[in-house]
Structures are given as structure tokens and as C-alpha cells.
């Protein structure tokens, strides 16, 4: 596990050109009025960044050599989950630190409270995306995975459009009211439990698909 994590972190050095982009997004959002808007974008970037470790593993067939090193398939899968979560968390923590520093010097552009709200909202979304993306990336090639993501985003967008047309405004408002009336504690407990459950399912699927792979 340690060796695999080290390998992915060392390969991450090659992605250092992404740092200026990170700062650019932050500055751009500041100019648009709120630095906190950068968090959703940067979180998604972190998910994509973590996925790139698979592409690195496949360069010049280095994955066939990698799998001769002393680790099991389960360890490889577990490391990918840890690495992905580490990327997402690091980016969000970094964003919050920058917003906290910014809020000290320019509170009109940076709001720490707003930043934290975004982090709380987007962390579960990023984890869910990771839980979906990792087994896909293990099962399919990078190209195929990108096609699946695009198709999925298309289906979700289509679903929203259809629902908006089909569900009457009154019913939608009622549903929203029902959602907001649920005590916070239900979300505080239910969402982490749901995420853990989905992560476990995703992990099992990843292990099964990895076992079927040949190099």
C-alpha cells in the first residue's frame, strides 16, 4: 500500500502544471464576486486529477510490470480509493486555507463560512463521483470511461428537463418543502452512512473487475 501511494504521489509531481490553473480559477472566481464558487470547480478537478493515476499506470504497459510487484489486487483497488479521497480532501483543504487567508485581507471577496458550506456540500458529491468513476476506470479504458461519463451527464440533464416539464410547479415546491423539513440530524447521519455503503459497493465491484483484467 505504501509503495503504491508513494508511486501515485511521485507521479503527481508531473501534474504540477495544474497549480497555476488552480490559482487562476480562484482569482477568476474572486473577480466574479465570491472565491467560494471556486470550490465546486476545484473539487471536480481533484476527482479528475485522481483518475489520471490510472492513465499513468497504463503508459508504456507499465501496469503489467506494476502487477508483478508485491501487492494484491485488493490492495491496488484500496489504494486508488485512498489516493482519490486524498486528492479531493487536499484540494478542498487547500481551497479553504486560501479562502481563510483571503477573508482576513479582503473580506469583501472571501467568506470563510460560505467556503465551508461549499466544502460540506461538495465533499459528498465528489466522494460519490469517485465511487462511480473508479470501478468504471478499472473496467474500461480511459477513452471508454470518458464516453460513459458524457453519456451519464447527458442522461441526468435530460432527466432534469423531462422532470421539469412533467412535474407540476406545485408538486415540486411541495417536494422541496418536504426535503427541507427533514431534521438536519437525519442528513448528518444518513448521508455519511449512504456514502459509506456506496463506497463499499463500489470497492467490491472494482475488486471484481480488476480480478477479471489481464495484462
Amino acid at each position: 500500500m505504501k509503495g503504491l501511494l508513494l508511486k501515485d504521489l511521485l507521479l503527481l509531481k508531473n501534474q504540477k502544471r495544474i497549480l497555476p490553473l488552480f490559482l487562476f480559477v480562484l482569482i477568476w472566481m474572486v473577480m466574479l464576486g465570491s472565491a467560494s464558487f471556486a470550490i465546486p470547480f476545484l473539487s471536480m478537478m481533484a476527482v479528475v486529477l485522481a483518475q489520471s493515476s490510472f492513465s499513468y499506470d497504463e503508459i508504456d504497459h507499465s501496469d503489467s510490470f506494476l502487477f508483478t510487484l508485491p501487492f494484491s489486487g485488493r490492495t491496488y483497488v484500496l489504494e486508488k480509493y485512498l489516493f482519490s479521497l486524498l486528492c479531493v480532501l487536499s484540494v478542498e483543504v487547500l481551497a479553504v486555507i486560501l479562502i481563510a487567508v483571503g477573508s482576513f485581507f479582503a473580506p469583501q471577496f472571501f467568506s470563510l463560512q460560505e467556503g465551508l458550506e461549499y466544502v460540506i456540500a461538495f465533499l459528498p458529491i465528489c466522494i460519490l463521483l469517485t465511487a462511480f468513476a473508479l470501478p468504471m476506470r478499472i473496467r474500461f479504458t480511459g477513452e471508454q470511461s470518458r464516453f460513459i461519463y458524457m453519456a451519464l451527464y447527458g442522461v441526468i440533464a435530460l432527466l432534469f428537463i423531462v422532470l421539469r416539464k412533467l412535474v407540476p410547479q406545485e408538486a415540486a415546491e411541495k417536494l422541496l418543502a418536504a426535503i427541507t423539513s427533514v431534521p438536519v440530524v437525519v442528513y448528518a447521519v444518513g448521508i455519511p452512512l449512504l456514502i459509506i455503503l456506496l463506497l463499499l459497493l463500489s470497492y467490491r465491484l472494482s475488486c471484481r473487475w480488476l480480478k477479471a483484467k489481464e495484462y
Binding site: L11, S62, S64, F65
Partner: peptide, 10 residues
């Protein structure tokens, strides 16, 4: 292996 080794970006 004949055609693979440690990742070339290391």
C-alpha cells in the same frame, strides 16, 4: 518484462 518496467515518468 520485455516491454515494461517502472513508469517512465518516474
Amino acid at each position: 518484462l520485455a516491454d515494461a518496467g517502472y513508469n517512465p515518468y518516474l
